[in-house]
């Protein structure tokens, strides 16, 4: 599904290398987690994969089902099946949540050569998905993320994911700013989307999200590289011992 090879990335405006050769394979239907200390490059990886400006890829590749992601515009990556749940979902005053979602769903359908969804079908579809995430009609009518609580914003991200049905979902610190109940709700939303043809890359600081969204593989990222890969037990190890041991190994 997602294949990253030797990815090196620097900031466009500064001579600062962030990713220093990331290698990562996420097979179809799997959930991979990336953990790591602050500044290790986790969020940069998610932004580079989704096509945000401000980064320059200096080496390596990233493909989704064989398609070169790095050559595509953000909207083309989305149409190819990539989805990033933002750590800080953006507020867009003046654009209704519903209008936004309908535009997005239909733009992706159009890009894939499918028919646009009728207004009635769309309404039925979104109501069903919203209900599962306890998103009420009012939240759908409001401008995108404006005045939403932290929990509401994250649930809105998962709603978008559910509506767009991507095959590769990247969750960038989706647990940040969530209380226990909200985390449970969001996790349930994610788990409901788990499917054979859909993979997840869950980026997080903390092991607790991984209690709810059980990963198949856990990677530790530090200093711009994947430095350790293991099973779910690796997350527990980090939770108990912190990153100090792993970082010490790197320095050794």
């Amino acid at each position: 599904m997602l294949s990253i090879k030797g990815l090196e990335v620097k900031l466009e405006d500064e001579d600062k290398q962030i990713l220093k050769g990331v290698d990562l394979e996420v097979p179809a239907g799997k959930v991979h987690a990336i953990m790591g200390p602050n500044g290790s490059g986790k969020s940069t990886l998610s932004y580079v994969l989704s096509g945000r400006d401000g980064y320059e890829v200096t080496a390596g590749s990233a493909t989704l089902d064989g398609e070169d992601l790095l050559d595509l515009d953000p909207e083309e990556r989305a149409a190819a099946g990539l989805f990033l749940a933002f750590q800080y979902p953006v507020e867009i005053p003046g654009v209704g949540n519903m209008t936004f979602l309908r535009t997005a769903v239909n733009a992706q359908r159009k890009a894939r050569g499918e028919d646009e969804m009728s207004a009635a079908d769309f309404l039925k579809f979104i109501r069903a998905k919203a209900k599962d995430l306890k998103i009420d009609a009012d939240m759908l009518k409001r401008p995108v993320n404006v005045g939403f609580s932290g929990g509401e914003k994250k649930r809105n991200e998962i709603l978008q994911m559910a509506m767009l049905e991507p095959k590769m979902c990247i969750l960038d610190e989706t647990d940040s700013g969530l209380d226990v109940d909200a985390m449970k709700l969001v996790s349930e939303g994610v788990n409901a989307l788990r499917a054979e043809g859909r993979s997840f890359l869950v980026i997080t600081h903390y092991q607790r999200l991984l209690d709810h969204i059980k990963p198949d593989v856990v990677h530790i990222m530090a200093r711009g590289r994947i430095v350790k890969t293991g099973g779910p037990e690796l997350a527990l190890e980090v939770e108990n011992n912190g990153y100090a041991d792993i970082l010490a190994e790197l320095d050794a």
Binding site: G51, E75, E91, F100, A107, A111
Partner: peptide
């Protein structure tokens, strides 16, 4: 930021 957010959802620029 808003432009990237919309594009990341598949909305053409």
């Amino acid at each position: 930021e808003a432009l990237f957010y919309l594009r990341s959802r598949g909305v053409p620029e």
